[in-house]
Design a protein around this nucleic acid. Structure first.
Length: 425
RNA sequence: GGAGAAAUACCCAAGUGGUGAAGGGGCUCCCCUGCUAAGGGAGUAGGGCGCGAAAGUGUCGCGAGGGUUCAAAUCCCUCUUUCUCCGCCA
């Protein structure tokens, strides 16, 4: 969430940049400021009364010792106690309203993020590789998967439902190989990441910390009955970022760089009909996520490193891709700046998102209370970043399509052969 | 899932309703002692929030949240986590 003091000091600028997301937040900003005014007024009153309570509470035992009558003063304090209780309740109420309002306001797009209303305004930053020219009609990965019997969406439809897959035989092995290749690469000497295997279930406080709750609950699978507070994670970003919730990260540990494999679960509400076939949009998919915690002054450098690290595994696989920066209308709720990496997908005839690398600045850190220390040793909110490093199912789809041969076989990229034990499927 | 115990600062730990949350270890500084060891003294509760230009000052912090009371680390309720034992289990 945004810093209320920052909002107060930069009201017009905040309103202006937020409106470029395509929704007007002026009323929400005004509400937040008026709630904060209310809060300060109540605190001024209640703390004065509490100071009086504390003072008198120290006098009462002395008076009793001296044999003085305390009946009158205790009656008076009783009234003050009642007033304090009432004001405390008001304060809690206003603070809850203020927090709710702040949680509903997205991050301010960074100055470098270009204005635009949708993905057509996303500037391309760079390209790597050249899409292969096929001398035959290339097939979509779902057709390749069906022909080879390695992807079984219909079986998953029966057993679970739509937008799930069984992988079979070399298909299952390929998915597993990609996961291992990603993790081994990110944790090698050049990558420098530490591997994490997180729980795939997280509680409501964690979901609020990274920004999924309260606004996006319809995108998540909640577990059990109404009375519990557990959700299937939509990305490893949630458990891994929340590892440091309510903590101060020691300076010598920064930057913290974690690479985490997890299954991800998304309801994809509102995506009916989109990417209906294949591995592109699933309710459950595998992903290796990169999460960084940095000192505030270091996050922009780390965003570049993080994005390069995600690109590195695609380059290792020889998959053509490009990097775009998301414009103000396309950048995610919690993010100040996001690079999307898009891989070339022959069946789509275009580049398709395979990774998203974001700098949240202190937006998540303030929600989750993740801090580090500045040069003076004072606690300040850390900066958090994350990026898919990268989506595994989409990578498998891209390999099947980009490496297919005229005879129906698929060549295994060199980097995966040690994991696959073969050079072709 | 059942029964019991516990949670106080960097660590250990005292504290069953009342004026500043003991004490010890460690750490920092000082003194003494030609070195070392030992000894003596002082300091050491973080963080949030309010007011203030600042110096300051107020308030809340004893696992979390409520309650009782003029007053709660202390009494009551709910929850979390850890430990021991039992049950179940990959």
């Amino acid at each position: 969430m945004l810093d209320i003091r920052f909002i107060r000091e930069n009201t017009e600028k905040v309103k202006q940049r937020l409106s470029m997301r395509g929704t007007n937040y002026d009323a929400a900003i005004d509400e937040v400021i008026s709630l904060d005014d209310k809060r300060k007024a109540i605190i001024g009153q209640v703390e004065g009364l509490k100071a009086q309570q504390n003072k008198v509470s120290k006098q009462i035992p002395q008076m009793k010792k001296a044999g003085e009558d305390t009946t009158a003063i205790m009656a008076e304090m009783k009234e003050i106690a009642a007033k304090v209780k009432e004001l405390d309740a008001q304060q809690s109420e206003v603070e809850a309203q203020l927090k709710d309002a702040l949680l509903g306001i997205p991050n301010v797009p960074a100055d470098k993020v270009p204005e635009g209303t949708d993905d057509s305004a996303n500037p391309e930053i760079r390209r790597w590789g050249t899409p292969k020219e096929f001398d035959f009609e290339p097939k979509a990965h779902w057709d390749i998967g069906a022909e080879k019997g390695i992807l079984l969406p219909d079986v998953a439809g029966k057993v679970t439902g739509s937008r799930f897959h069984f992988y079979r035989g070399m298909g299952a092995r390929l998915e597993r190989a990609v996961i291992n290749y990603f993790l081994n690469t990110h944790t090698d000497e050049k990558g420098g990441y530490t591997e994490i295997l997180p729980p795939f279930i997280a509680n409501g406080a964690s979901m609020t910390g990274t920004g999924q709750l309260p606004k996006f609950s319809e995108q998540m699978y909640q577990l059990g009955r109404e009375d519990n507070d557990l959700y299937l994670i939509p990305t490893a970003e949630v458990p891994v970022t929340n590892m440091f919730r309510d903590d101060i990260i020691p300076a010598e540990q920064l930057p913290v760089r974690y690479a985490a494999y997890s299954a991800c679960f998304r309801r994809e509400a509102g995506a009916a009909g989109r990417d209906a076939r294949g591995l592109i949009r699933q309710h459950q998919f595998n992903k290796v996520e990169l999460v960084n915690f940095t000192a505030p002054e270091d996050s922009w450098t780390q965003l570049e490193n993080l994005t390069r690290e995600a690109e590195r595994v695609l380059e290792g696989l020889g998959l053509p891709h490009r990097v775009v920066m998301l414009c103000t209308g396309d950048v995610g709720f919690s993010s100040a700046c996001t690079y999307d990496i898009e891989v070339w997908m022959p069946s789509y005839g275009r580049y398709v998102e395979i990774s998203s690398c974001s700098n949240f600045l202190d937006y998540q850190a303030r929600r989750a209370n993740i801090r580090c220390r500045n040069a003076e040793g004072k606690p300040v909110f850390a900066h958090t970043l994350n990026g898919s490093g990268v989506a595994v199912g989409r990578t498998v789809a891209a390999i099947l399509e980009n490496y297919q041969n005229a005879d129906g076989s698929v060549t295994i990229p060199e980097a995966l052969r040690p994991y696959m034990g073969c050079d072709k499927i």
